[in-house]
């Protein structure tokens, strides 16, 4: 059986900075993969190339056996690739229900009635049922993060790409989101999750990949990856050569997050 998602030699440069340097990666059906790495490591860029928001300079993206490199984000979504954004991008002037309904009608391609039903059940699943008629622009950060997940689920994805859904949240809030993701995982949905809050990841994913300077420097079980010398070096920043191009956070800050 082929993998659900396969990346082969994905390369992307912005000017002189190489943000993805021939990345090969595959995600199996129902697998939960976590991606960590310092800021500027190219995690979100990699996501955008998987979801189709950004075209790679070189390399190939295959989803469920089909090459999707030249297809746009909307087409990939309809094939079953759902994503969230690090900075939530709700449809602010639409209600929470309508936000998810767009996804159900377009991404999942459902007719009216079935769209209502999917949107309702997704909102219940993500704990947003009470906010269904609220304008999305009026939501709190936690609710916006939930809405990102809800909207991605509304497209009925086979692979869910989560981009720092736990970022900026308090510990109890992170717990709530982790519980939601774990429930999805239990349903057999394949997940790729970028997260700075490593603790949230390690409790949920079966495999962890560490990205730095546009390359994969660690791939294995969470314990293996976090223990590897290369990963620790990047996070602790002891070797200037291995440090990412433009780190926005300082090493102690990252270390704090890692060990929290």
């Amino acid at each position: 059986m082929t993998a659900l998602l396969e990346l082969a030699g994905i390369t992307k440069r912005f000017g002189l900075v190489t943000v993805a340097d021939g990345i090969d990666l595959s995600v199996g059906h129902g697998e939960a993969l976590g991606i960590v790495g310092p800021n500027g490591a190219g995690k979100t860029t990699l996501f955008s190339m998987i979801s189709g928001d950004l075209a790679p300079d070189d390399g190939e993206v295959r989803f469920d056996g089909a090459v999707v490199t030249s297809r746009d984000a909307a087409a990939r979504c309809r094939l079953g690739l759902g994503r969230t954004y690090q900075v939530p991008r709700p449809f602010e002037d639409m209600t929470v229900f309508e936000n998810v309904l767009v996804a159900a009608r377009y991404g999942a391609g459902l007719p009216t009635r079935a769209g209502y039903e999917l949107a309702t059940s997704v909102l219940a699943e993500t704990g947003l049922a009470a906010q269904a008629n609220l304008r999305a622009g009026a939501l709190t950060l936690l609710q916006r993060k939930r809405l990102e997940v809800a909207r991605a689920l509304g497209t009925r994805p086979r692979l869910l790409l989560l981009d720092e859904v736990a970022g900026g949240l308090t510990d109890p809030e992170v717990e709530e989101l982790v519980a939601i993701v774990r429930a999805l995982r239990g349903r057999g949905l394949a997940i790729v999750w970028i997260e700075h809050v490593v603790r949230a990841l390690t409790s949920t994913v079966d495999r962890l990949v560490c990205l730095a300077g546009g390359s994969i420097i660690g791939d294995g079980t969470p314990a293996e990856v976090l223990a590897s010398a290369a990963v620790r070096e990047v996070y602790l920043g002891s070797d200037p050569e291995a440090a990412p191009a433009a780190p926005e956070r300082t090493a102690p800050d990252l270390l704090g997050k890692l060990l929290r």
Partner: peptide, 24 residues
């Protein structure tokens, strides 16, 4: 109609609209 739903989404956030399957 369904198209109206898509258009309202596009008005609010084009990138997100594309990410949920709308042919913008």
């Amino acid at each position: 109609s369904r198209l109206g739903l898509a258009l309202t989404a596009v008005r609010d956030n084009e990138v997100a609209a594309r990410s949920v399957g709308v042919d913008v």
